[in-house]
Design a protein around this nucleic acid. Structure first.
Length: 602
DNA sequence: ATAGGGTTAG
């Protein structure tokens, strides 16, 4: 009996183990129907074979196997051909199951039949029908171990199945086997493989695949390498991205607009707009390709994210002039930025333009207004949102979440209940964000106890409440200076293994300030500086407010001056806090100084 | 076939 490959595969496929433990007592294998043996007319081999095939064809695999065993009474039978025929007929029946297929596989081992190539191919055909790519991979490996070569189409098919089920490690193994056999996967599959790997953070593996194929002189189209380039630019690996980009160029490969847009994205994300614009020039000069709406929109988005809304608006105007008509994506990005800056007039103007151009707002337009809610512009946000929610049938959970948030802020509780029922009716499943939004509303409108009650009652869509859920309640407890509740939430977090993050720390600083314990508040901040989590600008602003409240303007200014060393830069709120405090203390010199600094920054 | 967009907590 050939043991080694079987052992290896058993380890890989747990199901096989399950079957092995079953098989000793299984009726399929052991309880042979002995009645035939007592029959004075013993059927000959041909009859047995036909009978076995008919039974297998109709899906009666147990009975077919019994007949198969009866063939042993004929010398030299059954052969592997009988066995292959058995599986083949079984696969033609309507009720093929993995369990039976594995059972057949082990039966082959048990009776020490030596499989041939067709045995494996038949199994693989069945496993492919069952979409069992993991088992199919094990069988493929075993097939190779036996010295048989799987066909190109078989491997190609398996690669596709692995990719469809996002089993990327398996897909890579199939790719390895293919390359070993000198089989080159087709271009669509290569693109899918590289794309999936890149998107899942397996960029190095994607590169490996790409360069392996390049060695063989295959796939020089930018569709193959762009996913890698994008992945590098998105994960802030610009030097790698550039090296990759240039090395391909040196090798004579061609880049297209999408390749250059990736670089523009990477630079823009870091605020390096000069470099980004240099990419645009290089693109025209030696790439012989031209930026398009997506390229410009990428820059618009980066400008918005960097708070440079005026420049973004200027670029928007330039796009229109140059004939790169902005689309709804471009407008949504700008609307979102305007909404975060509370630029209501500009929002209405842009909204009007969108309609004028015959574009229609979509789900992203709706969510773009969430900034208005944060800024307290509830009524305006409500009007804009209602329009879209009522007109657009294509709303999703994010739109509902923003709309719910808006209704809660507007204290429209009846309408919010109605919206929740609409959500159910539309078959849109609430997510953690939905529940956290509701949780916040309960905290604000009712007691923290009520929130905790909801917290424990609700069936969370993810596995558990997340760190935002905990912070929502923690924040409410901290705002009220409710020590017992703060302790309760901290205990709960520990039980659930959820670590305090920068938001939780900031809440606690607020708490110590509220109960008049500025000392512990400062200690908390120091702890963050020394051991993390790294303070954010919100943390620092909170600290500034606390210091200024306690008439420690000097200390606040010191923190302000050392912001750079923490890798932070002050925002509009920082200046506002300090300028107000300086005014209160009638420190006119500081007021002027701060105003000057703020203007230069803007 | 590759590229640009959104929602919750401080």
């Amino acid at each position: 009996m050939i043991l080694f490959p079987v052992k290896r595969i058993c380890r890989k496929v747990q199901f096989f183990y399950q079957f092995m433990s079953l098989s000793s007592s299984s009726s399929v294998v052991q309880s042979l129907d002995m009645s035939e043996e007592n029959n004075p007319h013993f059927p000959d081999y041909g009859e047995l074979r036909t009978k076995m095939q008919n039974l297998a064809n109709s899906g009666s695999i147990g009975k077919a196997l019994q007949v198969f065993h009866l063939m042993r009474n004929v010398s030299g039978k059954p052969t592997i051909y009988d066995y292959n025929s058995l599986i083949n007929c079984y696969l033609k029946s309507k009720n093929v199951s993995l369990h039976d297929l594995c059972g057949l596989y082990f039966e082959m081992k048990r009776v020490e039949l030596y499989p041939n190539a067709s045995t494996f191919n038949t199994f693989l055909k069945g496993l492919s029908l069952l979409d069992e790519s993991k088992v199919a991979l094990s069988v493929t490996v075993e097939m190779c171990n036996y010295g048989f070569t799987p066909s190109f189409s078989c491997l190609s098919n398996l690669l596709k199945k692995c990719l469809d089920s996002m089993e990327l490690v398996d897909a890579l193994k199939v790719f390895d086997i293919m390359l070993e056999l000198n089989f080159i996967p087709t271009e669509p599959k290569v693109i899918l493989l590289i794309n999936s790997l890149s998107r899942c953070g397996m960029t190095r593996k994607a590169c490996f695949v790409f360069f392996k194929l390049l060695e063989k002189g295959e796939f020089q189209s930018p569709y193959v390498h762009n996913p890698i380039l994008w992945s590098l630019c998105k994960s802030d690996q610009m030097s790698c991205a550039l090296a990759f980009f240039c090395s391909l160029k040196k090798k004579g490969l061609v880049h297209n607009v999408c390749s250059y847009t990736a670089l523009v994205y990477g630079f823009g994300k870091k605020g390096l707009f000069e470099e980004a614009s240099r990419c645009l020039n290089i693109m025209k000069a030696d790439g012989d390709c031209y930026p398009n709406v997506k390229t410009y929109t990428t820059i618009v988005k980066c400008l918005c994210d960097g708070g440079r809304i005026k420049e973004a608006l200027r670029l928007l105007g330039e796009m229109e002039k140059k004939g790169f008509e902005p689309d709804i994506v471009t407008y949504n990005i700008i609307l979102r930025a305007l909404s975060h800056k509370n630029m209501v007039l500009e929002i209405y103007e842009l909204y009007h333009t969108i309609y004028e151009k015959g574009l229609s707002p979509d789900r992203y337009t709706a969510t773009a207004f969430s900034g208005l809610l944060k800024r307290g512009n509830i009524g305006i946000a409500h009007n804009l949102l209602r329009d879209i929610v009522l007109s657009d049938s294509d709303v999703d959970v994010a739109v509902y979440n923003v709309y719910l948030h808006c209704l809660f802020r507007a204290r429209e509780f009846n309408e919010s209940l109605f919206m929740i029922s609409c959500m159910e009716k539309d078959g849109i499943k609430p997510n953690n964000i939905t529940f956290n939004t509701i949780l916040k509303a309960i905290c604000e409108e009712k007691t923290v106890d009520k929130a905790l009650e909801f917290f424990e009652r609700v069936e969370w869509p993810g596995k558990r409440p997340d760190v935002v859920s905990f912070n929502t309640i923690l924040s409410a407890a901290c705002k009220r200076g409710d020590s017992i509740m703060v302790q309760t939430v901290l205990n709960l977090m520990e039980d659930e293994g959820v670590k305090l993050n920068v938001v939780g720390f900031t809440c606690l600083m607020q708490y110590f300030c509220n109960i008049g314990n500025v000392n512990d508040c400062l200690k908390l901040f120091e702890h963050m500086i020394c051991y993390g989590p790294r303070p954010s600008m919100v943390t620092v602003n909170t600290l500034m407010v606390i210091l200024c409240k306690n008439r420690e303007l000097g200390a606040a200014y010191e923190v302000f001056s050392s912001l750079k060393s923490y890798g932070l830069s002050p925002d509009a709120r920082t200046y506002d806090i300090l300028i107000r405090a300086a005014m209160n203390e009638r420190n006119h010199f500081l007021v002027t100084e701060l105003q000057r600094k703020f203007t230069v920054k803007e």
